[in-house]
Write a protein that binds this DNA or RNA. Structure first.
Lengths: 336, 336
DNA sequence: CTGAAAGCGCTTACAG
DNA sequence: CTGAAAGCGCTTACAG
């Protein structure tokens, strides 16, 4: 037997469908007594309003879409969880889509979401200004997460990579380290670039005499390991390494320890991300923690505001999620 | 300006809406020439069919729902990724919902999905037979993932915990270990119980003379650490530890090493899950790997079959995803 | 307060 | 091949 419709409820309660609709949507415009009768009838029939019909007439889907580059790994896991929680608390459903290999696939995913969502959370390497102009349905509330976009047409939210990196450099400097080498991430990667910028800025302003030293990496543990070997060959040897992410820091740590260096006595090591593993390597890794779930939650909050007040969207509004220094054993004063 | 509708396209192309619909849905029933004209008009207007209207009339949402207990952590991260990939390859959208603290919240989430999805992937601690009968919309194709349900009314998919645990025990036995202690998971946890069962079965059938030894744990690293101390106190000391999950194995490893035991020479340690960290502890952890993404993918495949052939649903069909032994340095022959 | 009716944007028999 | 029309299940002015 097919699911009950509003007609069935109306018949069961002996009223019109209009009254059923009113009773079930807040109960305004019906007497308490009719309302009660309708509610009971609906319960008896296990009536659940047909979502599509409601969407069609109200032009509201009560759903938000999340377009992400991937779902795998710590970062996305936390991000989507933050989004999910915030969406649920607003009574919104969450439609996810990820793993778009190229811009065309991302565009298709974007199109496919059209009409299914009231708003969009978008994080994509393809999301430059052109792409958005081409593919984003106009008037669809959208919040950009961690995109490289600098334009002022959309709300955007990102991690404070720059500030986080500065925290790390200042921490290392405060320990008395003066020869801090930076292991870069993949060229063109936005996070990596911003973290490097923070390193440069902080060093320039707080220790103008300290040399800026860069080693190439690609975020992989292996590249960190290789960079570790390069560090070993540098003369005079750096007294601290700051890797643009934890995995490289971990690889570097391994290379340095294999060579017999004591950490942090001989050389301090810092990373970025605070992956779960950071606490488990030997010695535990000093790093920068970002509250990713909060990133997702705040993005959802921003989107929620747009949904509630479509008129005064503060397009171009930017917000950042703070990063935080987590000191562990891999960094300490040279003496001890 | 509001989004273009099928009427706009019809007017633009100078045909009826019926023809537009036919042209855009496979092009059967229109001449190539008209079809072409319609396609161009649609493109010009950036026409995207209104999803809700289509759902309403076709009774198809082209969406599947995934109800999960959580989204956080390695397991769910991989699971949802496997689901997402498989869904996309079938042209299906993915609606997710998670973190239902109690049965009532899970029920509400289930109800909210009604009418929004063509099928359901369900993994929930609350999903016992009663719960499903009460809350699952009838006739909604559903695949249960890793539920404790033994009934024969639904398709179900689960991890082969039992077989995986047997692999580990057989491995340890093959190394000559004869006193293998098992660290249990949380009481009532299905995975934990099945893994323990595998331990018992395997020991009983392959080494009936070996003692069965159980220590209580709760899947946390701390509980593994505590269990490690208990292991140290046992006389004669076990020559191998099999923890019901990796985190406990890692905690146990720490306790044993702190006490000066050599691993694996003095005692071998095995875990279950193959979390990313397993490769990074010292020594790297021997464990059981489960292809979680495959679990998600296969669940989606099972659901896809039901969607394609609603008539011959093989309700009650069970399937398991294999587990695999990954040997690392934490286990080896006692000699070295 | 209540109901009849229009209409949201589609698809699909049904005629022509 | 093509179009007019019905209808999917709702909500919401509009009357009464």
């Amino acid at each position: 037997m097919p699911a009950a419709t509003i007609k069935d409820v109306a018949r069961e309660a002996g009223v019109s469908v209009a009254s059923v609709s009113r009773a079930l949507n807040g109960g305004r415009g019906v007497t308490a007594e009719t309302g009660q009768r309708i509610l009971e009838a609906a319960q008896r029939l296990r009536y659940v309003p047909h979502a599509a019909a409601r969407m069609l007439i109200t032009r509201r889907t009560n759903t938000v879409g999340a377009l992400l580059p991937d779902l795998y790994g710590e970062f996305f896991s936390e991000l989507i969880r933050g989004i999910d929680l915030a969406a649920r608390s607003r009574g919104l459903h969450l439609l996810v889509s990820s793993s778009h290999d190229d811009a065309e696939a991302a565009a298709a995913a974007l199109r496919a979401m059209q009409g299914r969502v009231d708003g969009l959370l978008l994080m994509s390497p393809h999301a430059d200004a052109d792409f958005l102009r081409q593919n984003l349905p106009q008037n669809l509330p959208t919040v950009l997460i961690n995109t490289r976009l600098s334009g002022a047409d959309y709300c955007a939210l990102s991690v404070d990579n720059d500030g986080g990196a500065r925290l790390m450099v200042e921490h290392l400097l405060s320990l008395g380290r003066r020869r801090i080498v930076f292991i870069q991430g993949p060229p063109g990667n936005r996070d990596a670039t911003q973290r490097e910028l923070g390193y440069r800025e902080s060093l320039a302003s707080h220790a103008p005499d300290s040399p800026m030293m860069m080693l190439r990496g690609d975020f992989s543990e292996e590249s960190g390991y290789r960079a570790g070997h390069q560090v070993l060959a540098m003369r005079p040897r750096p007294d601290a390494v700051f890797a643009a992410n934890d995995m490289m820091a971990i690889g570097c740590l391994a290379a340095l320890r294999e060579a017999g260096l004591r950490i942090p006595q001989d050389i301090a090591v810092g990373g970025f991300d605070d992956v779960p593993m950071a606490r488990y390597v030997t010695p535990p890794l000093t790093t920068i923690q970002v509250h990713i779930a909060e990133l997702g939650g705040q993005a959802m909050a921003l989107l929620g505001e747009q949904l509630d007040h479509p008129d005064d969207v503060r397009a171009g509004s930017r917000r950042r999620v703070d990063a935080e220094l987590v000191v562990r054993a891999s960094s300490a004063a040279p003496s001890g």
